[in-house]
Structure formats: structure tokens, C-alpha cells
Simulated assay, not measured.
Amino acid sequence: MNNVSGIDQLLANLSTDFKRNHLMTVGEAGGVPVEQAKRWVDSKKGYFDMIFQFDHVSFWEKFTVGKVDVAKLRVALTRWQSGLDNNGWNALFLENHDLPRAVSYFGNDQKFRSQSATALAMMYFLMKGTPFIYQGQELGMTNVDFNDINQFRDLDSQRFYREELAKGASPEETLVKLRAKSRDNVRTPMQWNDQPNGGFSDHQPWISSNPNARYINVANEVKQPDSVLNFYRQLIHLRLKDPILLNGQYQLIETHDHQSFVYQREENHVGYLVITNLSDQPATVTISDRYQNRQLVLTNTTEKQQSSTMALKPWAAYLYKYERN
């Protein structure tokens, strides 16, 4: 829904029905700035329990090709964490039915597929709010390399292809853009096993399966202790067992770089420290003395970190629990 004139009265009427029936509601609220979000998700008067906002996935035009600036990502997500603190509740997400695969969009689905999928998972999943997982995200499913426009089903992608060719673009350069950003990337069938169609169906699905279903699939990842799937399971377990990851206050730890995303969740002087390198290059993060008494809870790497200056490998992620005086 869009933030247009007259929508408040409509949503107020809907909200009455929602609350009367004790329904949990999530609104897709394009164009709602964080400054106005309180009236949408206020615990008593808001229209919804939470809303999806798109600041962190709107850094460039739909069919341009490029990578996210991590510094801008920190600013966008922190703005909503701070803006709704004690005023509402965030809906946390990296993927949905209209976006490319997160590991391809934010991460590196070639050299660092598993590492970047798990680093991104830790980065967003432990923020304050309710995390959403889109089907296949928990496997690290990637964009699909369709090489013919007839393989695409999304009407918007087909329209873009025709318009670009009419402007003089070549089929190949247009397909490069579609392979990066088409919505069909997240609409390929769920990859259950290495059987035809990824085990999704015995019949030809409406859109082709990703060929990498041969090795990126549930049956494989269930058996691998360090798989993306089992990493997500550990994150879910942590959120369910410790109230700090439900109620703890979010605070960004500014690193003044374009690689790392570091923050804490804390309640009553006990908290979690989330440290991620969201880049293909090594990064250095210096940790304050206040976190000296920290214990490693979860990581996606075998590299041990003992000093306050941490040398992070590409797409390394660390979760520590700490207690301070």
C-alpha cells in the first residue's frame, strides 16, 4: 500500500476488525518514512503490528547492476531500529517475492556463497523485531542464470526486455540486468533435493528450477553441520531462548567503513555483540574494552579472535555474549 491521502481512514476501519479478531498484521508500507511510522505500528493506536519498509533495498534503480554500499545499509537499518524503539515493532527481512536473492543481491553467490549467506543472516536476524525468512533464503538459494527471455515469466521483466531492445540495447546486456534484478530470481521452485525440478514437483513447474538445485537443496544441507540451513536453525534457537534478543535495545557501533556492520543488543548490562564483515575483502574492527568479558556464541568461520582488534576474513560473522559492570 502507498502512503497517500485518505489511507488513514481506510486503515483505521480495517484495524478495528483486525484487533477485534486478535489478528497479527503486517503491512507492506511503501513510502512511509520512519518519522510517520509510529501511527502505523503504535502498540495501542497503530493500524498494524508491524510494517515492511524498503529503505535498505532501494539503493539503486530496479534493473541497474551493482552492489550495496554497506555504510548506507547501516544507516538505513539503524534509522528504523532507532525510530521504532519503544514506538513500534520492526519487520526484519532481506528477501521477498519482488526482490532478487539476498546472497546474490547483497552478498557474493559465487566465491563466498555460504559465508555471505550466513553473515547476512546474522546481521539482520538478531536485530530488534520479527525476522522473516523467504522460502529458500535459509538454504542460500541464488539468482538463476536464465539465458533466454522466454525463460522469464515476470511480465515486468519481459516488458523491460522489449523496451531496452527498442532503445538499441543488445539481448545479452539486457539479460545481464535481468539476471541481476528480475523478480523471477526468487520465484523459482523451492529446492528440496537433487531430483528433477529440485524435488518440487513430478511435473514441469510454471518456471524452470535453478540448475544449482543439484547441490543447493534441503536434503544436502540438513546433513551438513555448517550449512546455511543449520546456521539459520541456530539463529532461530538463540532468538527463542534468550529474551535479550527479543527486548534488548539495539545500538549501532560505528566502524566508519564500507565493509562491516557491528551492533549490540543489550538489557540490564548483559548483551550480545554482533560483528559482521559484509564484503569480499578482509576488514579490521576494533572492539571497545567494555566487551572484554565476551564469550563466543556463534560464528561462521574457524578463525579465533582473542584481541580487541579483530582481523575479519571476507564475510566473517561473530556473535558474542557479554556482561559488563
Rank of each mutant, 00 (worst) to 15 (best):
R324L: 12
A91F: 11
V297T: 10
N268Y: 11
G168M: 14
I287N: 07
A117D: 06
L73C: 04
N185K: 00
D8R: 15
F200E: 01
S116W: 04
P100L: 02
V285I: 13
K321R: 15
Q281R: 02
Q191D: 01
Q249M: 04
R233E: 14
P225L: 03
H22T: 07
N230E: 13
N220R: 15
V297N: 04
Y215A: 01
F261D: 02
L312Q: 06
P131A: 12
T25D: 13
G129N: 09
V176I: 12
P211W: 14
T309S: 12
I149D: 09
Y105M: 11
L77V: 15
G83N: 11
D85Y: 08
S82A: 12
S170G: 15
P100D: 02
N197W: 15
Q158T: 03
I149L: 03
Q36H: 14
N143C: 08
Q306E: 14
K177L: 00
P225D: 15
H97C: 12
G199L: 13
T130N: 09
L99G: 11
K241W: 05
R101Q: 05
N96G: 11
R39E: 14
N217Q: 09
N247G: 07
T301G: 11
Q306N: 15
D154R: 04
K45N: 11
R294S: 09
P282G: 07
E266C: 10
